Simulated scan of single mutants.
Amino acid sequence: MFINRRQRKPKVTYVILVSSLLLILLLNGCASLNEHLAMKDAASFYKQAKWEDAAKKFEEALRINPYRPENWKHLGFCYWNMIEPGSTAQKDMDATRKALEAFQKYLQIVKKDDSIQDYIINLYINQNLLEEGVKYYEEVLKDNPQDTRVLFTLSQMYGKMGNFDKSLEYSLKKADLTPNDPAGYIYIAALCWQRSYNRQDTPEVREQIVNKGLPQIDRAIQLDPKNSTAYVYKGLLYRQLAETSKLRAEDEKDRRKKKELLDLSEQYLTKANEVRDIAIKLRKEEKEKSEAKATE
C-alpha cells in the first residue's frame, strides 16, 4: 500500500501543536502557582511588619506576573515603611525611589487612585526630591492638563523650590478650573503675601505681587463672606502695602511725594486693622458655633 507522506504531515503538525499548547498551559499553571505562593509568603511577612522579606516576595511574584496592581501597591508600602522620614541616607533614598517606582507602576495599571497619589506627593516633598517630582508631574499633566490635583501639586513643589512665578502660574490655572472654591483663591493670596513678606524683591516689585493677591482674596470673600481665613490674608496683604509704601517714602527725595507715600502707608494700615477686626469677629462666631454644637 502506497502512503502519501504529504497527507500525513498535517496530523503530525496538529499533534505537535496540541502538545505545545498543553506544555504552555502546564508552564502557566506552574507560574501561577509560584506567583500565588510568593504572594502568600509576602502577605505573611507583611502582617509581621518584616518589610524587607515582604518586599523580596512581592518582587518575586511581580517577576512572574507584572500586571497584578495590588502587588505593586503593597511593594510600595513595604519600601515606604523602610524609610526614615526626611533622611538623606543612601538606604533611605534607595527605599524612596523603589517606593516611588512601585506606586507609579501601580498607577500605570489602575490609572487613578488619589490615596496613592498622596503617598507619591509626600515622598517627593518630604524626601526633598522636588526636581524629580516636578519632572514626573509635568509628564502626568500632559495626559490630563485639567487635573486640578496635579496643578496644585506642581504649585506646591515649585513654591518649595523657591520658584514663585511657576508656583503662581499653576495655582492660577487650578483656581480657573475650580471657580467656586474659595480655597484656591486664598492659596494664591497666601503665596503673594509670603513672597512679599520674605522681602526678596524691591518695594515696587513687592507691591506688584501683593496687588496680584488682593483680587484673588476678594473673590474668595465674595464666594464665602464668612471665611475668617480670607480676611486674615486680606489684612496681611494690606500690611505689606503699608510697609512697601513706607519704604518707598524713605527713598523719596521729593517732600510732597514722600508725604503722599507716608499717608498712603497709614491708609493701608487702617484698612489692615479694619479687616483684622472682621477676622477676629468671624473667628469668635466660629468658636461659639463649634462650642454650641459640641454641647448638643
Results as ranks from 00 to 15, higher is better:
residue 218 D to V: 13
residue 262 L to R: 06
residue 190 A to L: 10
residue 190 A to M: 15
residue 210 V to W: 00
residue 179 P to L: 14
residue 178 T to R: 13
residue 194 Q to V: 05
residue 254 D to V: 01
residue 202 T to V: 14
residue 263 D to L: 02
residue 202 T to H: 03
residue 198 N to I: 02
residue 249 A to P: 02
residue 204 E to C: 12
residue 204 E to I: 07
residue 252 E to K: 09
residue 223 L to D: 02
residue 199 R to G: 04
residue 221 I to G: 01
residue 264 L to T: 07
residue 184 G to E: 02
residue 254 D to Q: 04
residue 229 T to S: 12
residue 256 R to V: 02
residue 200 Q to S: 12
residue 236 L to E: 08
residue 189 A to V: 02
residue 191 L to A: 12
residue 183 A to Q: 09
residue 261 L to M: 05
residue 220 A to D: 09
residue 213 G to Q: 10
residue 223 L to R: 06
residue 198 N to K: 12
residue 181 D to P: 04
residue 202 T to S: 12
residue 236 L to N: 13
residue 198 N to P: 01
residue 195 R to Q: 15
residue 243 E to V: 00
residue 201 D to Q: 09
residue 219 R to T: 01
residue 189 A to T: 08
residue 181 D to W: 01
residue 208 Q to N: 11
residue 217 I to L: 01
residue 225 P to F: 01
residue 202 T to D: 04
residue 256 R to A: 09
residue 196 S to E: 05
residue 181 D to N: 12
residue 215 P to C: 00
residue 259 K to N: 11
residue 180 N to H: 10
residue 230 A to M: 10
residue 248 R to I: 02
residue 189 A to K: 05
residue 228 S to F: 05
residue 207 E to L: 08
residue 242 A to K: 05
residue 247 L to D: 10
residue 241 L to F: 03
residue 253 K to D: 12
